[in-house]
Amino acid sequence: MLTATATAETDETLAMLAAGGCRTSFAGLIERHYDRIFRLAWRWAGTRDRAEDIAQDVCVKLAHAIGGYRGDAAFTTWLHRIAYTTTLDHIRSGQRMTAYEPSEIERLIDGSASRTTGDAVDGEELWQAVRALPPQQRDAVLLTYGEDMSHAQAASIMGCSEKTVSWHIHEAKKKLKIVLKGVG
C-alpha cells in the first residue's frame, strides 16, 4: 500500500498531500502512526479491545479532519490532539453507560483461556492507579509522562494553562504516593 516516496516523506509533507486529497499519502500516515494512536488509546483505556475501537475511531476522524491541516503545527501535535479528544470521548461515554463491578469479576472471567484483552502488563498497579486519578490529573500525567510531552504541550492539548498542568501533576503525585505506598 505504501509507495517508496511516501515512506521517505516527512509527516508534514504527507499530511499536506493528504489534505489536498492524496489517498496514498493519507494511508501512509495511518500506517505510520496507527501504533502510536493505539498506544495512546491504550494508556487511557487499559484494554486492547477498547484501544482498538478508539484507534479506529481516531483514524476515521483523521480522514475527515486532514483536509483542514495547513502545516502550521507539527503533525504529531495535531494528531495527538485528535487522538486525545477522541479517547476522552470514548472513556466518558463508556463511564456513563457502564455499571461496574468490583475488580474480582475481571479476574474471574479473564483468567479464562480466551482472554482477549492485553492487561496483564508490567506495572499494572501503576497503570491502574494513574487511571483512577481524577480525569484532569490523569490526563496531565499521561500526557506528560506517558506521551512524553512538555507541560506546555500538554497544556495546549488539554486546553488549559501550563501552570494548571503543573498543578495537576503535583496533585496527582501526592495521590499516587498514597495509593502506591502499599504496592511498593
Binding site: 500500500m1 489517498r23 493519507f26 494511508a27 495511518i30 500506517e31 496507527y34 501504533d35 493505539f38 498506544r39 491504550w42 494508556r43 486492547r48 484501544a51 482498538e52 484507534a55 479506529q56 483514524c59 476515521v60 483523521l62 480522514a63 475527515h64 492485553g118 492487561d119 502488563v121 508490567d122 506495572g123 501503576l126 497503570w127 494513574v130 500525567v141 499521561l142 509522562y145 506517558g146 506521551e147 512524553d148
Partner: peptide
C-alpha cells in the same frame, strides 16, 4: 509510564481501522 510495554494492537484491528479511515 513512557517505557512500560504497551500491548500491541492486533493486525486485523489495524487493517480494519485503515479500511474505515480510507472509506471515510
Amino acid at each position: 509510564l513512557k517505557t512500560l510495554p504497551v500491548p500491541a494492537a492486533r493486525a486485523d484491528a489495524k487493517r480494519a481501522a485503515m479500511e474505515a479511515a480510507l472509506i471515510a
